[in-house]
């Protein structure tokens, strides 16, 4: 499966359609859609991740792997400014989205979160809302008023993108909580896509799901890379190998903070890792 993906991405990289779709900035400078520079994050006084530098390419899947508690989740929560919502959450360093620092003082985190969506580990549909309302929530609650027709279009499009439309099209008024775990997670993906973000962060989106539901979501992710940039945190290394283009390995240093050890094309990280720690982790000798 990985081989197929590799071929697909190589072939697609050379087609003119895909090239024009990529961001201009990226073409010109060779930089990623997200450039993380010296990012450190704290919970009160505890340094959780230290000096992470990474460049995330557009319209690709970047996997973040590492042992439990190494700060993978904290890292991606820094990318949509959700870390600072947690009690005592604090961040230093820069995160450039299309060249502009999302932590600059004149940037509203709410605007950043509309451009960088997120799917959480535990499926979290809003329990008081129907399936339709769940998907429409992002639009409804960021505006004063929306036209019903427009909402209907967006909801259908998002549910189709999340490969859930066929299963729920006849019961859009049912509660989102009535769906199965895998369906709920796809509902959350549809909800994130409905506000048309550029980047979707996924925090272990499959860890609460069975293998079949996991497979569905992985297929879905591959399809989404035509339009979206995806960053996925996973502690499942097979998943990272199956689905991602690039992989970042984070581990804990001797002071308990998460550091980026190695980052590169997934095939290279898994086939011949440069760092001993990466090799130990991937071969299962650690973590």
């Amino acid at each position: 499966m990985k081989g197929e993906n590799m071929i697909k991405s190589i072939v697609m990289a050379d087609t003119p359609v895909n090239r024009s779709a990529k961001s201009l900035l990226q073409e010109e400078t060779g930089k990623g859609i997200l450039e993380v520079e010296d990012l450190s994050a704290w919970y009160s006084d505890f340094l959780c991740i230290r000096d992470i530098n990474i460049s995330i390419p557009a319209r690709a899947i970047t996997a973040v792997i590492g042992p439990s508690g190494c700060g993978k989740s904290t890292f991606i929560r820094c990318l949509n400014r959700l870390h600072e919502v947690s009690h005592g959450g604090r961040v230093t360093g820069r995160v450039l989205l299309d060249g502009k620092d999302i932590y600059a003082s004149d940037v509203d985190p709410v605007v950043i979160r509309r451009r960088i969506g997120m799917v959480f580990q535990k499926p979290s549909p809003f329990p008081t809302m129907s399936i339709f309302d769940n998907v429409a929530a992002g639009l409804r609650l960021t505006r004063l008023w929306s036209r019903r027709r427009e909402l209907e279009e967006v909801v259908e499009k998002s549910l189709r993108q999340a490969a859930l439309w066929e299963e729920v099209k006849d019961k859009l008024d049912r509660s989102g909580a009535s769906l199965s775990g895998g369906q709920q997670q796809r509902l959350c993906i549809a909800r994130a896509l409905a506000v048309q973000p550029e980047i979707v962060l996924m925090d272990e989106p499959c860890s609460a799901l069975d293998p079949l539901a996991t497979l569905k979501i992985e297929d879905l992710m591959r399809n989404l890379t035509e339009e979206y940039t995806i960053i996925i945190v996973t502690h499942n290394m097979q998943q990272a190998a199956r689905v991602s283009d690039n992989t970042a390995f984070i581990t804990i240093d001797d002071q308990g903070a998460g550091v980026l050890v190695e980052y590169g094309p997934t095939s290279q990280i898994f086939a011949n890792p440069k760092d001993k720690r990466t090799e130990d982790y991937i071969t299962g000798r650690f973590g």
Binding site: V85, V111, R113, F120, A137, L141, T142, C188, R191, A192
Partner: peptide, 17 residues
């Protein structure tokens, strides 16, 4: 649950909304 608040914030919804 706090996850509901975070899910809403992650959609770019303001805290009051």
């Amino acid at each position: 649950p706090n996850s509901m608040r975070e899910a809403a914030l992650a959609l770019g919804i303001t805290r009051w909304r």
